[in-house]
Simulated scan of single mutants.
Amino acid sequence: MTFSLGLQRDRLKLLALGAFLLSASSFSTAASDSARIISTPVEKNAIKQPTSGKVTPNKSSVVGLINLEEVMPDCQQQVSKAKIKSVQRSESGITTESITFSLANGNVTLATHMSDNPVLTLDDLMDATKFIKVGNTYFIHFQICEQTQERSLINIYAI
Rank of each mutant, 00 (worst) to 15 (best):
A16G: 08
L17I: 00
S92G: 15
Q76N: 09
M1W: 10
I66A: 07
T29A: 12
A16T: 12
I154Y: 04
T137N: 11
I47S: 06
Q76Y: 10
I159S: 08
K48F: 02
V62M: 05
Q8C: 03
F20E: 01
F27S: 12
K133L: 15
L12M: 10
S80G: 03
E150L: 14
V134F: 03
I94M: 10
Y157H: 04
V108D: 02
N136M: 12
K81R: 12
E43W: 05
D10H: 09
G53A: 05
E91T: 12
G64Q: 03
S61T: 09
L17Q: 06
S86T: 12
F20M: 03
K133I: 15
T2N: 15
R36F: 07
T137H: 10
S23H: 07
L17T: 02
R36A: 14
F101L: 08
L125F: 06
N67E: 03
A35P: 00
S80D: 11
I84L: 06
D10K: 13
A158V: 04
F20N: 02
V63T: 06
N45D: 14
P41L: 07
E43S: 12
E146D: 14
L153R: 01
V42P: 00
L21S: 04
Q49F: 08
L153G: 01
I156P: 01
V134L: 05
V71Q: 09
S28P: 01
S23V: 00
P57Y: 04
D127K: 15
F3Q: 15
L15M: 10
P41H: 04
G135M: 11
S23C: 02
V79H: 01
S60H: 08
H113E: 07
M1Q: 09
S4F: 10
F3A: 15
S25D: 11
G6W: 06
H141G: 04
P57T: 05
T121N: 10
P41F: 09
S25M: 08
K48M: 11
S60W: 02
Q8G: 02
A104T: 12
G64A: 06
T112I: 08
T40V: 08
N136A: 15
Q143S: 13
G93T: 09
R89N: 13
S32A: 09
S25F: 04
I47E: 11
S152A: 12
I84A: 08
D123I: 13
V63L: 07
V55W: 06
L5V: 07
R151G: 05
A158F: 01
G135V: 09
S92F: 04
S92H: 04
V63A: 01
S90T: 13
V108F: 03
M72E: 14
G64F: 02
A128V: 07
S26A: 03
S92V: 03
F142T: 00
K83N: 10
R36L: 10
A46C: 11
I47V: 15
N117S: 07
D124A: 11
S102R: 08
K81N: 07
T121R: 12
T109G: 01
K130T: 14
G18L: 05
F27G: 09
S34Q: 14
A111N: 15
F139G: 01
F3I: 12
E146R: 13
T2V: 07
V108E: 07
D116H: 12
M126E: 14
I156G: 00
G53I: 05
Q78W: 02
K48P: 00
I140T: 04
A16M: 05
L122A: 10
G106F: 10
